[in-house]
Simulated assay, not measured.
Amino acid sequence: MRTLVFVDLDDTLFQSLQKCPIENALHPVAYLRDRSANSFMTAKQRMLWQLLDDNALIIPTTARDYDSLYRVKLPFRSWCILNYGGVILTPAGVPDPYWHQRMTIASEAAISDLTAVLILINTAITRYALAAHSRLITDFNLPFYVVVKYRAGHIADLDQLQQMVVTPWLMTHHDYQLHRNGNNLAILPRSLGKEHAVHYLIKQLTNEWGELLTIGIGDSLIDGAFMAECDYSITPRGSQLFKETLGRQLV
C-alpha cells in the first residue's frame, strides 16, 4: 500500500525568519526572485521532511503559484497542488488536463466578482490611506483569488479593511469565502479549494494504484478541509489550526 502525504508549505514545513525560534540550525529553503532566502526550516522541520520523504510520496498542497513553488528548494518528485487547489501539476510538471478544464470554467464564472471586490478594496485603501496592497492571483492564464496583505507594522489597517469592505461584501456573495491568517487575507470562490484537488487526486491515484494511506498536514483553519479528505491529519503545535482544535484541550 502506498502512502501519500498532502502537505501545506508555508508555516507548516518552513516559515519566515521572523517566525522562527531562536536556534542555530535554521536552514534556508525558499527564496525571493532576487535569490535571497526568505523562509527557513528548523531542525525539527528538517527531520519531519526526511521522515516523510523516506517513507511516502510527498505532494505539496499550497497557495503558492508555479513560480514561487519552484523557488522552494525541496525535492518534490511527483504531483503538486498549487493556488489553493486551482492547479494540479502532473509528475511531468504540466497541468492535469481534466483539472485545468474544470478550473477554467470555475475561473470564468468568478472573474467578474473577483474584479469587483478588488476595485472595492483598492478604493478603500486609497481613500483611507491604508498601509495594505492587494492583487488578483493568476497562474497558467487563469484568475483564482484576491489576496490582500498589510505592510510591516500595520496589521490594524488590514483589520479595518476586512471589517469595512470584505466582510460586508461576503455577506452578499455566498459563493466566496475568507481566509485570514496573520498578514494574509484571501477571498476565494468556493469552487476553489485544496480539498477539491486532494479529493480528485486521491480518487485518481486510488484507481491507478489501489488502496492508499493518506495523510494531510497543514497549519491554517482553511487547511482543515483538505486534511479531512485524508486518513490522518497532522498540524504543527501553536498553528492557527492547532489553537482552534487541540489547543483548546490544554489546561
Rank of each mutant, 00 (worst) to 15 (best):
T167R: 15
A116L: 08
D219N: 13
D8Y: 07
D8C: 11
Y84R: 09
I119C: 12
I137V: 15
Y84M: 13
D231P: 05
K73R: 15
D139H: 02
H179T: 11
N38E: 11
P75S: 04
T126P: 00
S36N: 12
S134I: 03
L69C: 07
Y176I: 08
V94M: 08
F14G: 07
R71Y: 06
T167P: 04
D8A: 09
I121P: 03
C230G: 01
R35I: 00
L4H: 01
M1K: 13
A228F: 03
Q18S: 15
D65V: 13
I81D: 08
H173L: 01
F242G: 05
Y70F: 14
A129E: 15
E23G: 06
N184Y: 12
K194M: 06
D231G: 13
R35E: 07
H27L: 14
T62Q: 06
A152M: 10
L213S: 12
Y31H: 02
H196S: 04
S36P: 03
I234M: 13
P95R: 06
F14Y: 15
E229R: 15
L32K: 15
D159G: 00
D159Q: 10
A124G: 02
A43K: 15
S233V: 03
L250M: 15
G247L: 04
Y128N: 13
D175N: 15
Q163D: 12
N55S: 14
L246R: 05
M164G: 01
I217Q: 01
L250K: 12
A186D: 10
R190L: 11
Q45E: 11
D113C: 11
Q45M: 10
E23D: 08
K44D: 10
I217R: 02
R64P: 08
H199F: 09
T167N: 14
Q162T: 14
Q15D: 14
W209M: 11
S107F: 04
N183V: 01
I187R: 05
V146D: 00
F76I: 01
L32E: 12
D10R: 12
L142G: 04
L241V: 04
H173P: 06
A56E: 01
N83E: 09
